[in-house]
C-alpha cells in the first residue's frame, strides 16, 4: 500500500485540457455524484460499526454507570481523574511503550535479516519460505496458548528440557513473574509479527533493480557498503510500511498477553489494552476512559503515520 494520500482533485489522469477525458466530467453535477452509490454502503457500514462505537465510547467515559449497566447520570471528568490516580496507571503506560518499542524494533531487525536471506538463491529456499508462513497460519491466540503450555511450571516442555540440560536447578514459573513473563510475551509477539513484516520487506527487496547492485559492485563497494548505501535507502518505503503496520498491531495487541498471563499478577504484565479490559469488570466508565486515552494514543500513532507518509511523498 502506498503511504500517500489521494491526489488532489483533477491531478489523477485527466489533465487533458478542457476535454472530459476521465470517467467523470468535473463540470457536470450529476456525473460528480456518480460514484456515490458505489461508496455509500461502505461509508454507512463504517459509520455504524466502527465510528459509532467510538462516539459511544467517548460518551460512556463521562457517565456514571453501575455494574449492572444502569446509567446514574453524568460523571463529568471523575472517571478520568479516577483512572489517572490509579496506582498502576503510570507503570501500565510505561510498559505499553516498552512493549511496543521492543517488539517493533526486534521484529524489524529480524525481518530485515530474514528478508535478505530469503532474497537469495539457495537450496531449500522453498521449504524455508513455507516455514515463513507458519506462525501466520496458526492463529495468534493458539500460538500464545501453545507457548503458555510450553512454559508451564509443572508440565511444560521448556522446564523439562532445561532441567535435563542442567541449565536450571528447579523448574521455573516463567509466566508467574513479570521479569520473565515480559520477555517471553515479547518473544511471542515478535514471532507472530515476523511473517507479514518479512514478506513486506522481501517484496521491497525485489523491487530493487539488479543493475544497481551491479554498478555498485563494479565501483568496488563491499557487501556492507552496498547494503548500507543502496539496499537500505531503496528499501525505505517497505520499511516504513512495516514499521507503521507493526506499531499499530503491537500497540493494539491483546490476545498474546491475555492468553499468557491475563495481565497479572495484579497489573504487572498489563499493557494499556489489557488494563482497559480488566477495568471493565469493576468500572465500565473508568474502562471507557482508559479506552479514550488508548484511542488518543492510537491517534498520535496515526499522526506519526501521516507525518511518515508525507516524508514519503517528498522523495
Amino acid at each position: 500500500m502506498s503511504l500517500k494520500a489521494p491526489p488532489s482533485p483533477a491531478s489523477s489522469g485527466r489533465g487533458r485540457g478542457g476535454r472530459a477525458a476521465g470517467p467523470v466530467s468535473r463540470r457536470s453535477g450529476i456525473a460528480r455524484l456518480g460514484p456515490l452509490p458505489w461508496i455509500a454502503p461502505v461509508i454507512l457500514l463504517i459509520l455504524a460499526v466502527v465510528v459509532w462505537p467510538v462516539i459511544e465510547l467517548i460518551r460512556t467515559s463521562f457517565l456514571n454507570i453501575s455494574i449492572a449497566g444502569k446509567v446514574r447520570g453524568s460523571a463529568g471528568t471523575d472517571k478520568f481523574e479516577k483512572l489517572f490516580e490509579e496506582s498502576d496507571f503510570g507503570a501500565v503506560l510505561t510498559w505499553t511503550v516498552i512493549w511496543t518499542v521492543v517488539v517493533v524494533t526486534a521484529t524489524m531487525l529480524l525481518s530485515l535479516a530474514l528478508a535478505q536471506l530469503f532474497n537469495q538463491k539457495f537450496p531449500g529456499r522453498r521449504i524455508t519460505r513455507w516455514a515463513l508462513i507458519a506462525p501466520w497460519a496458526a492463529s495468534v491466540l493458539m500460538t500464545a496458548i501453545g507457548f503458555k503450555w510450553m512454559l508451564n511450571q509443572t508440565a511444560g516442555v521448556l522446564n523439562t528440557l532445561m532441567l535435563d540440560l542442567g541449565l536450571i536447578d528447579s523448574s521455573k514459573d516463567w509466566l508467574g513473574k513479570p521479569e520473565t513473563a515480559w520477555p517471553w510475551m515479547m518473544a511471542v509477539a515478535v514471532f507472530v509479527s515476523l511473517p507479514f513484516t518479512t514478506y513486506t520487506l522481501l517484496a521491497g527487496l525485489q523491487t530493487i533493480p539488479q543493475d544497481v547492485y551491479e554498478a555498485s559492485r563494479i565501483d568496488g563497494a563491499g557487501p556492507w557498503q552496498t547494503y548500507r548505501h543502496i539496499t537500505l535507502p531503496m528499501l525505505r518505503p517497505a520499511f516504513l510500511v512495516g514499521v507503521v503496520i507493526n506499531l499499530i498491531n503491537v500497540f493494539n495487541s491483546f490476545p498474546i498477553i491475555w492468553a499468557m498471563t491475563q495481565g497479572g499478577p495484579g497489573y504487572d504484565t498489563s499493557t494499556s489494552m489489557v488494563f482497559m479490559y480488566k477495568l471493565k469488570e469493576t468500572d465500565i466508565g473508568e474502562s471507557a476512559a482508559m479506552s479514550v486515552v488508548n484511542f488518543l494514543m492510537v491517534v498520535v500513532l496515526v499522526l506519526i503515520f501521516l507525518k511518515v507518509s508525507r516524508w514519503n511523498e517528498e522523495d
Binding site: A5, P6, S8, P9, A10, S12, G13, G22, P23, V24, R26, R32, L33, G34, P35, L36, I39, I43, I46, V50, V51, W52, P53, V54, E56, L57, T60, I248, N252, F254, M273, M276, Y277, K280, I284, S287, A288, S291, N294, F295, V298, V299, L301, V302, F305, L306
Partner: peptide, 30 residues
Amino acid sequence: IARFTFPGNRLVFMLFAGGMMFPVILALVP
C-alpha cells in the same frame, strides 16, 4: 476513491485510514 474526484474524497480516504487504527478490542462494549 482512487479514480474519481468528488467532494470529500480526501475525507473518505482519511475515514478508512483512521478506521485502520481503531482495534476491535476498544469497541467491544459499544
